[in-house]
């Protein structure tokens, strides 16, 4: 581990010197530092700076402080009743110990667990730009079928972020250039030819809170497929919310995890579904429309069938549950 200095953040607009990074729960960053994948010169601890409270927004909705721990967010009664998909996604992630440490802001900013990215001795365009991507011909069973590029096919590992994207959450940030409100869907970027940049955040820009919309999304669910019963990253996940009136789909939100370099909002599928009959056939057709853009490699084509099945299954259950808000 490289020697680094440590200080506590004092103000939102402080910014960061080159080579400095923010530290919150540390559940991902510290691992990467031990492995030599991250080698910051300075750690700026934001644990005392960012809010760790969940508050009601005027006009409805909730504001989640960036320092709220995953376990606290999952257990919050308002979240559980008004946005069950978020609570379910959080509880599907990591382990109890990790959820107790991991923060809302940090969870959003965690890095891919692509096995080449996690190994400093191997080439990787994300941790060492320009060195190439061995995953394309190597191990990619759990890497992207959507949104990848020649340079990178990493998947974003967060469960929580998938739910936030489905909920149309907004990420509030603060930095040297002032404050910004970024739709959760737009926080993460696709790799293109610059896979080293996971998000649209500028250096020194800090996530301060996440806003959940006023509209309550009670008929919502998160379902995660994984290689063991617990403590495993998704191989495919679906966050969905659905309203049905007279057998027809009203509002629908659909986001997928573990299939793309970012939480994947399935806009094409949503569009196909609005106003369509709330039937398994519609759900499958919508998933197929979204998956028409999938590019599978040797060992990850199963994700296409998996996402199709998962999507239809989750929407069927939401439709059966009443489909009302």
């Amino acid at each position: 581990m490289k020697t680094f200095t440590y200080r506590s953040a004092t103000g939102f607009a402080d910014g960061l010197e080159p080579g400095a990074v923010f530290l919150a729960g540390g559940t991902n960053l510290v691992d990467l530092m031990k492995l030599g994948v991250a080698a910051p010169d300075v750690l700026v601890d934001v644990n005392r700076l960012v809010a760790d409270e969940i508050s009601e927004l005027p006009g409805g909705g909730l504001r989640i402080g960036a320092g709220v721990r995953n376990s606290d967010l999952a257990a919050d009664p308002r979240v559980r009743t008004r946005y069950p998909v978020l609570s379910q996604a959080l509880l599907a992630g990591a382990s109890g110990q990790l959820r107790n440490m991991a923060t809302t802001g940090g969870n959003l900013l965690q890095r891919t667990r692509c096995r080449y990215f996690m190994d400093a001795t191997k080439p990787c365009n994300k941790h060492a730009p320009g060195t190439g991507c061995p995953a394309r011909d190597g191990d990619h069973r759990n890497l992207a079928i959507l949104g990848g590029s020649d340079a990178c096919i990493a998947t974003h590992p967060s469960d929580m972020a998938v739910a936030l994207v489905a909920l149309d959450a907004v990420v509030n940030t603060s930095g040297p250039a002032g404050e910004r409100r970024i739709p959760a869907e737009e926080l993460h970027r696709l790799p293109g030819d610059a896979p080293e940049r996971d998000t649209v955040l500028e250096h020194g820009e800090l996530i301060t809170s996440v806003d959940l919309p006023a509209v309550e999304v009670t008929n919502s669910a998160y379902r995660k497929a994984r290689d063991r019963a617990s403590y495993a990253f998704a191989v495919g996940s679906v966050a969905a919310a659905l309203t049905v009136a007279g057998g027809t789909v009203g509002d629908v939100r659909l986001a997928w995890g573990a299939v793309a370099p970012k939480p994947w909002r399935a806009r094409i599928a949503e569009e196909r579904l609005r106003g369509a009959p709330a039937t398994r056939e519609s759900f499958l057709a919508a998933a197929d429309a979204e998956l028409a853009g999938a590019r599978a490699l040797r060992d990850n084509a199963y994700k296409i069938a998996l996402m199709r099945n998962l999507t239809a299954s989750v929407l069927e259950r939401l439709a059966a549950a009443g489909g009302t808000r």
Partner: peptide, 16 residues
């Protein structure tokens, strides 16, 4: 072998 930690080399968890 590219999966060389217990996050990526799976053994049964309690829930299994």
């Amino acid at each position: 072998w590219v999966n060389h930690d217990l996050a990526e080399y799976h053994i049964p968890a309690h829930a299994d």
